[in-house]
Each structure stands twice: as structure tokens, then as C-alpha cells.
Design a protein around this nucleic acid. Structure first.
Lengths: 348, 348
DNA sequence: ATTGGCACTCCAGTCATGCGAGTGCCAGAC
DNA sequence: GTCTGGCACTCGCATGACTGGAGTGCCAAT
């Protein structure tokens, strides 16, 4: 129905509208883009685009703006990723270079991305559900306090302070540590959690602990909590102030957006449900996010490889965002991040 | 200059303005507050208040709104803290009750406070500058990775993963651990940091390490980084979405506020510079925060006792906020928090 | 010191008007 | 069949005039 040139007109409308934030008319298009046809011709194409609901006019006889469906077509068929400038590549490198554990790297990643795009940047932690436990460590702090540490192969370290109320001698401590080790080490987090739960349900029977029964239970409980925390995915975010940078970006209030950012869980679900193309890129546009209360926003994301388990890095912004730039940015950052983590992994 | 009744008029204006968000006129005052005098009399008082720059008229012949100076007088002399309802006290208790380490408690505190006030809630970590180190622990993870853990008496645990590139046998590890222990344990963080710095400046000479020289340096460096992190104060915040709840709360953009929240360091400085009264309460109002770029906002805070070292808990909101309620809320939460931490401390 | 009265100011809303951008459509050209 | 120039038409938006009402400031009287 819509001609090839019609699609080019759609592209022009999206580009100009994102640029100027004003409805774009037929005359503006022939001026800014060398179509080689007159404004009247463009108008005919625009009428078709409007029939297809790819663009809409805010008021009769005003310029047109893309609909969410229009943005979708633009992203799927028309957007050519805008390659990053050398300066931008250098910026990513300088942000991400340097030592640091997983937390550090992800924080720097999210900062780089927000700086690059001017949007809210989001990085998912590599999924811990598939991660396996590599270490369980117990450190006695005195005064009946015990520090319980769990480490996974994805590089994440979790520590928890718990009050056990008694002192252990080294032998007992070593025994409990060993017991936890055989139950957990080398197993996926999910499975470990299951085994721990079994242990808690059938108390004492399995472990003929001479003493310290209550205290041991307390330690096991702490480990279980840490594993549970691993199981839940996690986000790092930055740049939420960018939502308020331009008044007109969001028609309504930015309240739901800020709330989603603070809640995290909404964004986690949203990021999880997005469907990536063969390049690992994905976008969720405007009303497509209505179910999450984010009907005025878009998310653009790219998969990255966090030591074997897939996760996403993305940006959140107004529906009327610069998709080519943002797509290119998330892809570049995701690739860089994947490389960082691989390299880090090989040094283990 | 300003009569006693004049001050009551100021109080009425502040209350009504916070309530209605509209300039309040002389007639509205006699209607809502039983002053027993006529509107004309109130007008005379208002003229005096205006001379003192405690109130101002947005336009000639419109109602008056309090100036920042007016809010200041209100807070210092006129505000009676609005006692919390039993339901609110119960809410605080239910939020804060339950086990958990310092991080948990502070997170729950900040949630309770934002829920109570509908503002952005801020909790300072107990100052670590004066905290003393109680434990240093090294855990070998294999593959040349080492987990370095530092614990202070304020209950804070910091862990850092570093790559040392070689394996230690138990004896060497114990030796290094003991060395770090004698240098750091029982000393304030600041002093420990100094001694560590000395150690790094005069390498090898002091420690006749048979091998592992580089690796040991790496460990010491990690410890230094952790101590440095302790030295910096830290905030927990919640409720930033509340800034966007009411459109008209902030005349300009909320961008600088969101930025300050993300930066943290600005808010840390601001919270640090506030001067508390004999009850431990403090407020910084409107333009008083100009230096921090927060001229349209107010902060209300209360000191609390975090195991011997003072810190603050507060809320951030529009200058036109409900001071009596917020003051009462931060005080109640601060007291509850102090009690929680004392109790926790005694159980060590 | 307080009050009622009164003139005055200024905001906010309403309506009429003109302008300009942009469309839709048609008849004619290629 | 596709494209084009032309033209009437529609709205949105800015402007300006007008009005009602809320609120003030001041003054003379109590």
C-alpha cells in the first residue's frame, strides 16, 4: 500500500520530528530532504501514511507526527544505526578501562551509557539464576556475630552479617563450612537454594551437630537469604535526572517513570520481556509499554554476554527519542562490556 | 516591630498557603482562623509583615505568600511539631522491626520516612571517619583471586574482590592477615588509612616477605581502597519520584534536584553544614540552599546516634512543605533508629 | 488600636479578530 | 498513471479589548 518513497517520507518525518519536536509539514520535508518531488506529492504520500496509522495530525491542518506504530516501522525497517564517533568510542573506553570487580564495571558502564545518550541508562546484572556457587565462607567476628559470604562464578560476591549468639571453635566452624561447601559449591544457585530449603525443613536429623544447633540454623538461613537475592535479577541505573531535562518530553507527569526507576522490578520485567533481533538489539516503544505504566516512554536495549549468561543493557527515554543513536550506543556499550567481562574471566 | 498577633497572622498564612497552595488574603484569614478582629486589622498586620519581608505579594493586590525568611521565622519560633498519630508510630515500628544488618536497617528507615512524609527521604550513614576497624579478613577464591574484607565497629562490612595472580599457602596468608590486623584493628579508619599509606610508600623494606611481594602490595592496595570508601560518608535515599508528584511544587525544573539526588555529594555537604538546635533538629530553607543549586527546596533533618557517631536523617521537599509534620516525622524516625542501633549494639 | 467604607489595581477568563501554516482536492501536464 | 501547481479551507495561536472579582491601601470615624 505504502510506496517505497512513502517509507522514506516516514523516515524523514521521524527524523525531523525528533530533531525539532514540532509537527512536520509537507513543505518542511521537501526543503530539508532532497526528494526531487513537490510538496503536493509528499502530501499524497502522507495521506497514505495516515491511512496506515503510521503518522497522525495533532489538529486538522497541522503537520504530522509519527504514531507509535510509525516509530515501530522506523525502528524495524528504516533506522540505520548512526555509527559512534571516535570521540564517543574513546569515551566508552575511558569509562570502562581500569580494574574493578563486577559491581564497579557495571556502574561505570551505566555511567558511560547515560553520558553517551543523555537518557536514563539501565544495565541488568548477568542472570544469577544460572550462576553456580564457587565459594562459601564463614568469618567469625566476635560477640556472636558471623559474616557469611557467598561467591558465584559470575564474579558476584554477597556478604551478610548475622547474629548467631555464640562462639564456634575452629573445628566446628570448619565442619559447618565444609558441609555448606559440599551442599552448594559447583551447583547452580537455584539448585543450591532448593537443597538448603530441604535442609531447613528437615532440621537436625541430617546434621548430627553436637551443639550449635540453633546457631547453625541461623547461618544456613543467612546463606539461603543470600542465594534468594542472587536468584532475583538486579539492575544498575543512572541518569534519572535526564527525564526532567526537557519539559516537553513527556506530556503527562514523569512520576510513573521515576517510580518505575525506584521500584526496579517493573523495569526488570519490561527488559526481560523484550524480544531481541538477530543482532541482539531490541526496542519497546510507547504504548507497547502501557502494561507497565510507561506508555509515554521507550526502551532500547542490547543483549550482552555476561560470562555465559545473557543479560541486557539499555536506555529509557521519551517515545520521541533518537533511535538510531541510542541503538548504536547500546550496541557499542554491550559489545565493549562483553569483551571486558570475557577478558576478566580469562584472567581467573 | 511585629506584634504578637502579627506573628500569629504569619503562622496562619504559612499554614493556609501550605494547605491551599494559593496566596492567602486578609479575608480568608479571618474566615479560617478565629482572630476576633476584622479583615482590615489583619491587613494592617500584613503590611507590617511585608515591611519585615516575612511575606510578599506575587502581584499588587493579590493575597500574600510567605518568603523564605517567613518560613524561617515560622520554623524557628512558630511551628509546633504535629505529634504523629498512633497509626504512624505503628507504621514506623512495622517498617523498622525485624533483624538485619546496618544496610538493611537504613534502607527500611528511609522507606518508612518517605512513606510517612511523602517527600524524598535521606539517611546518612553513621560517620565512618570516627569508626574503628575491628576485623580484616582475607579469603582466597582460587585462580589468583582474593576477597578482602574489612569490618568496622559501626557494623559496616566492606568486601572487595581483587586479582593477585598467585596462590598463597595457609601460613603466608595467616602471616599477612596478622600483619594487617596489627596495623589496623582497633584503630580509627582515618589513622589506619594513614598507616597503610606509609606502608605503600616504603615498600618491601618493612615486610621481609619471602615471596608474594607484588601480591601483598595488591592486597594492601585493596584494603586502602576500602578504608578510603569508609572515610567518605554515604547516603541512602528513597522517594525521589515524589518530587514529580505535584506539578506546581517547583516553579523551575526538578532537574537540579534529581541531579543532586543522583550525585549524593551535594546533599552530603548540605546535610553536613546544617546547624541543629538543642533537640537535634535542623532545617535549611529555600534560598538558603542556593549555594547547592537547590534554591527552591528545603531540607528538614534530625540528628540520630549511630553507635556513638552522630549522623542525620532528613527529608527533602519543596520550600512550601508541611514543616510541623516533617519535623515531627524526622524526629520520631531518628529516635526510633537510635534505639534500634543501640539495642543492636548491646547484643554484640 | 480598631473598624467600615471606598477607590484602586491587577489577574484571569472570555470573546472577536487576523494571520499563517498546512492540508485536501482538482484539473492539467508529463 | 504519476506528478504538479493552484486554490479554497481549516485550525491553532497570538493579540487586544473588555469584564468581573478578589484583594489591597488608605482614611475618617469610633
Amino acid at each position: 500500500m505504502v510506496s517505497e518513497r512513502g517509507l522514506q517520507v516516514l523516515r524523514a518525518i521521524v527524523q525531523d520530528y525528533v530533531d525539532t519536536r514540532e509537527p512536520v509539514g509537507s513543505k518542511a520535508i521537501v526543503e530539508r530532504h532532497a526528494f526531487g518531488v513537490s510538496a503536493a506529492t509528499i502530501r499524497n504520500d502522507m495521506a497514505l501514511l495516515e491511512d496506515e496509522e503510521l503518522i497522525a495530525a495533532p489538529h486538522t491542518s497541522s503537520g504530522r507526527i509519527p504514531t507509535d506504530k510509525g516509530y515501530r516501522v522506523f525502528v524495524d525497517h528504516l533506522a540505520e544505526l548512526r555509527p559512534l564517533s571516535p570521540a564517543q568510542r574513546a569515551a566508552i573506553a575511558s569509562f570502562l578501562e581500569g580494574p574493578g570487580d563486577l559491581d564497579d564495571v557495571l556502574v561505570r558502564t551505566v555511567r558511560a551509557l547515560t553520558q553517551l545518550t543523555g537518557q536514563v541508562a539501565i544495565v541488568q546484572y548477568p542472570s544469577f539464576a544460572r550462576a553456580t556457587v564457587t565459594h562459601v565462607e564463614l568469618v567469625q567476628l566476635g560477640g556472636g556475630r558471623m559474616l557469611v559470604i557467598v561467591v558465584t562464578d559470575t564474579g558476584r560476591v554477597s556478604q551478610r552479617l548475622t547474629f548467631v549468639g555464640e562462639e564456634f571453635d575452629d573445628a566446628d566452624l570448619a565442619r559447618i563450612r565444609a558441609e555448606l561447601g559440599t551442599v552448594l559449591v559447583g551447583r547452580p544457585v537455584r539448585e543450591g537454594l532448593q537443597r538448603i530449603a530441604d535442609r531447613l525443613d528437615a532440621p537436625a536429623a541430617q546434621t548430627p551437630a553436637p551443639a550449635h544447633e540453633r546457631a547453625t540454623d541461623e547461618i544456613v538461613r543467612a546463606v539461603a537469604e543470600e542465594l534468594e537475592e542472587f536468584r532475583q535479577d538486579k539492575l544498575v541505573m543512572a541518569g534519572s535526572a535526564n527525564l526532567a531535562r526537557r519539559e516537553a518530553d513527556f506530556r503527562g507527569s514523569i512520576y510513573p517513570l521515576l517510580e518505575a526507576i525506584e521500584e526496579q522490578v517493573t523495569l526488570l520485567r519490561l527488559m526481560g520481556e523484550m524480544v531481541a533481533d538477530e543482532q541482539g538489539l531490541s526496542a519497546s516503544i510507547g504504548r507497547e509499554n502501557d502494561a507497565f505504566g510507561l506508555g509515554e516512554a521507550s526502551v532500547v536495549a542490547s543483549d550482552y554476554d555476561g560470562t555465559g549468561s545473557l543479560a541486557r543493557v539499555g536506555v529509557l527515554g521519551p517515545t520521541r527519542m533518537d533511535y538510531p543513536t541510542n541503538l548504536a550506543a547500546v550496541r557499542a556499550v554491550a559489545r565493549y562490556l562483553t569483551r571486558m567481562l570475557e577478558q576478566d574471566d580469562s584472567s581467573r
